[in-house]
Simulated assay, not measured.
Amino acid sequence: MRIIIGLSTLLLILLTVKYIRMKKQIRYLTGQINDLADGVSEKMLDMSLVDRDLEKLAGAINKHYAKQRYTVARAVQHEQRLKESIANISHDLRTPLTVLMGHLQLVRKSDLTQEQNRRVETALRKAERMKELMETFYDLSLIDSEQAAPVKERINFSNLILDFLTENAPLLESRNIIPDIRLPGCSVFLDTDRIMMERILQNLLSNAVRYCAGDIMISLSDEGNGKVVFCMENTVPAGTKIDTARIFDRFYTGDPSRHGESTGLGLAVVKVLTEKLGGEIAAGVREDVLWVRLVI
């Protein structure tokens, strides 16, 4: 009888010890699962467990997590490729669309009948709207693309600016703006990403033209230490209130009355791209003149 009681007591002790160890490992697994769910850890669950059923459970969870992580990685990769495709397509469409708008503006100056003029004006408005939508897609793809790295090359920055202004001459002419351009006597070269720099220039000019009250000044100077300073200034209507502390924020528009004309992404993209290129950007207002200065 004593032997039976002794065995029963021993069995109860063993079961109690096993129960306590299982509870401890369940709590351990729960902690690991919570760390995975909260993003604290990406480590797979520990499979060195006392109970085989717990090991099978941990194995099943690991299998599910591995599949989920693969699916997320594929989704992120697909999203990144989609953003890059949108950016590339938008950039490729910009030049032919600008040329098309330029020709339409030239045709508008011709001796047209009233009906022909109406049709040209309609086509020009639709082309301008298409350009705005295209640039919005491009801006969104750039501002959310943290993985996009610049591909730098040696470029003649002075020539890039002149070519850019020539390309956008129809836009300036349509607003009766003759920019004051101040470039050094000799060419300024820069190691930079050509596409990103073109986008910076485009957004700065679009912003300046949209809010310009008459004059635009563009200047470039070589600091002599591998850095250049590019500045674009435009007059703004007297009394215009611009929060320069927020001017580079997404969706910020300085003039509420023109909110519908702008997505508020242009200068935010300029800041993102400037920082990707290792540069600095600043903005301010003095005597009804808005200035944006880049050091790259």
Rank of each mutant, 00 (worst) to 15 (best):
R108I: 02
A73F: 10
A127Q: 02
L204C: 07
M47G: 04
D38N: 12
N168I: 01
Q116E: 09
A208G: 01
R118D: 09
N88T: 13
L183Q: 03
G214I: 06
A58C: 04
G31P: 03
M134E: 09
N176L: 04
I20E: 11
K18C: 14
A60H: 10
Q114R: 11
T274W: 01
N88E: 15
A58L: 06
L100S: 07
I89D: 07
T95S: 10
R182E: 09
R94V: 10
M1S: 10
H91Q: 12
T113M: 00
S257K: 05
R81F: 11
P179D: 06
A149H: 07
L277F: 02
I89G: 02
G224T: 09
S174D: 01
K83D: 14
N207F: 03
E115V: 06
R175K: 11
L267I: 04
I281R: 00
G224L: 08
H78C: 11
K83R: 15
F189Q: 04
G266H: 03
D35V: 01
L112D: 04
G279K: 02
F230C: 04
L140R: 14
R69N: 13
A37K: 09
E42K: 08
R118E: 10
Q77D: 15
L7K: 14
E115Y: 06
I4T: 13
V295C: 11
A245L: 12
V209S: 01
H103S: 03
I4P: 05
S257V: 05
S257C: 06
M1H: 12
K152E: 05
L172K: 03
A282H: 06
F189S: 04
A245K: 14
E173N: 12
I3H: 13
G239V: 02
N117I: 05
I218R: 03
V17T: 14
R129S: 09
S90T: 03
C231Y: 02
D243M: 08
A149L: 13
G214H: 06
V99A: 09
V188S: 05
R199I: 11
I143W: 05
K23P: 04
Q80D: 13
T113Y: 01
M44N: 10
A127G: 02
L290S: 01
E280H: 03
P184T: 01
G224K: 12
T136R: 12
I86L: 12
A73G: 06
H64Y: 13
R94L: 15
D180C: 07
